[in-house]
Amino acid sequence: MKTEKNAKHSDGNDKVTSPLPLPVERAIIKLGHDISLARRRRRISQASLAERMGASLSTVRRMEKGDVRVPIHFIARALHVFGEIQSLAELLDTARDDIGLTLMDQQLPKRVRNKTPGTGAL
């Protein structure tokens, strides 16, 4: 899928959006390919997956092609059908966000002092 195709919304609006960064586009295309592979390995037809997801056949086809306009809830539904919904739930687990935790640690005070009596401390 070319990023130029994503320049306009699919609802007919002429509102121009910024093109997707190439790594984002590649990741979405890979995810679609992986969903297709997972479906075929489980011997599930596209029609059956669509029915189990509560989606249309065209949505499943677009999702497997890496169409960026497929809403994330359909991807979540596909993961649920495959028994992989936990991987989405843990995608950006804040307890394991090394960068975020490091940034928070940098903001910690160098030392903590007890408040002196009479300054409002209990």
Results as ranks from 00 to 15, higher is better:
residue 18 S to F: 10
residue 115 K to L: 10
residue 78 A to L: 05
residue 19 P to W: 01
residue 22 L to S: 15
residue 10 S to Y: 12
residue 122 L to C: 07
residue 75 I to C: 01
residue 23 P to M: 08
residue 24 V to R: 05
residue 102 T to E: 13
residue 5 K to W: 06
residue 63 M to C: 11
residue 37 L to A: 07
residue 81 V to N: 02
residue 72 I to C: 08
residue 76 A to C: 02
residue 47 A to D: 11
residue 63 M to W: 04
residue 31 L to V: 07
residue 30 K to A: 15
residue 76 A to V: 04
residue 15 K to S: 12
residue 4 E to S: 14
residue 111 R to L: 03
residue 113 R to E: 11
residue 35 I to W: 01
residue 54 G to Q: 09
residue 78 A to G: 03
residue 84 E to T: 00
residue 12 G to T: 13
residue 39 R to P: 01
residue 32 G to N: 06
residue 103 L to W: 05
residue 32 G to Q: 04
residue 43 R to I: 07
residue 111 R to I: 05
residue 94 T to V: 13
residue 52 R to A: 13
residue 9 H to P: 00
residue 92 L to H: 08
residue 78 A to M: 07
residue 41 R to T: 10
residue 53 M to K: 01
residue 44 I to C: 02
residue 81 V to Y: 01
residue 94 T to P: 02
residue 96 R to S: 13
residue 96 R to K: 11
residue 4 E to M: 03
residue 66 G to T: 09
residue 87 S to E: 10
residue 122 L to N: 11
residue 22 L to D: 15
residue 79 L to M: 12
residue 89 A to Q: 04
residue 63 M to Q: 09
residue 49 L to G: 07
residue 103 L to A: 10
residue 91 L to S: 05
residue 82 F to Y: 15
residue 10 S to V: 14
residue 90 E to L: 12
residue 36 S to M: 14
residue 69 R to C: 00
residue 71 P to E: 15
residue 115 K to E: 08
residue 72 I to A: 14
residue 19 P to S: 10
residue 14 D to G: 15
residue 54 G to M: 06
residue 34 D to L: 13
residue 72 I to F: 12
residue 27 A to E: 14
residue 120 G to W: 10
residue 60 V to G: 02
residue 25 E to R: 14
residue 6 N to T: 12
residue 73 H to V: 08
residue 44 I to H: 03
residue 5 K to Y: 12
residue 79 L to V: 00
residue 19 P to N: 12
residue 120 G to Y: 08
